[in-house]
Design a protein around this nucleic acid. Sequence first.
DNA 1: GAAAAATATTTCTAATGCGAAATATTATAG
DNA 2: CTATAATATTTCGCATTAGAAATATTTTTC
Lengths: 157, 157
Amino acid sequence: MDRILEIAKLLMRNNQVYFTLIANELSKYGITIPQAVVLDTIKDQRRTIGEISKAIDLSYSTVSGIVDRLERHRLVVRERDEIDRRVVWVSITDQFGCLGKDHPILIEDLYSHIFLDDFKELSSEQLDSLYSSLQLINRLVEKKAKVIQEKKGSEVV
Amino acid sequence: MDRILEIAKLLMRNNQVYFTLIANELSKYGITIPQAVVLDTIKDQRRTIGEISKAIDLSYSTVSGIVDRLERHRLVVRERDEIDRRVVWVSITDQFGCLGKDHPILIEDLYSHIFLDDFKELSSEQLDSLYSSLQLINRLVEKKAKVIQEKKGSEVV
DNA sequence: GAAAAATATTTCTAATGCGAAATATTATAG
DNA sequence: CTATAATATTTCGCATTAGAAATATTTTTC
């Protein structure tokens, strides 16, 4: 019981520190974590606001705001779809190309860059166990998340 | 390598869902997670803004804002220290007493309330392993966090 | 004891984040 | 073919978060 609480706290605390570390790394290039996450989703191909929202599990309005600021920094551009004019395409600019080539701006690179050393301290068995435990917890937690999602959906009716 | 990335993602994803679930639970009582965390620190005794900030690892300005809103909801009161008038004491009101008595508003209660079932699915061995792995990662991560903290401190000079 | 340094808090600016409402556009129903 | 429904996005209001600057007060220094 106490141990469970401790585990929950460790999970949250680790997460908090991870974010601080990544944010610190990104601040060198003048971008934030959410901005990097969005850039990650469009680095290889343009995406609509809706596609980005679903891919990174943030609301449309939040993504719209992040894209506002990325556009202001000239790292991405918005373009209306010619056929379906409701749709907005977001794509990276040359300016982003210059920034991204030499530095780890994309989230997966940052994970590697920052945490690989930490995880290397764990034995293969520990990693196996950690992975399976987290997967199990994740399955249970996702189930609860789904229930809430569905409740919200039904309320709208 | 891929597995490490997967673990990092699971850690973050679980955390995200946890927050959603807790926020959902708290919204029934009209309060938010940060508000509940602050209330938790002052439920038994009044605290200064600075004490709260250190206890929950948030900036003074953030705590000041949260207390603003809790005060607006009449759940806490601010009082200037009579002797050292720089200091502001924050304490719960009777109104909070009424709210908190019957419902799990405090974060530890919420953990139990929401996650105990999930963690019960893990065997005692799995819990042991999870705990020790997380502790190890946490030690390494905290070390890095400390380095950053110190860098920032030296920059201020 | 007055100037300077230290301490405690608030205010301001900027970036998230969500949900609800508004807007624009396309698809569908009758 | 037009009224309505559905879809995609933005805007708005509110809460959170940090850091920097401002404010208030106390302590230290000389």
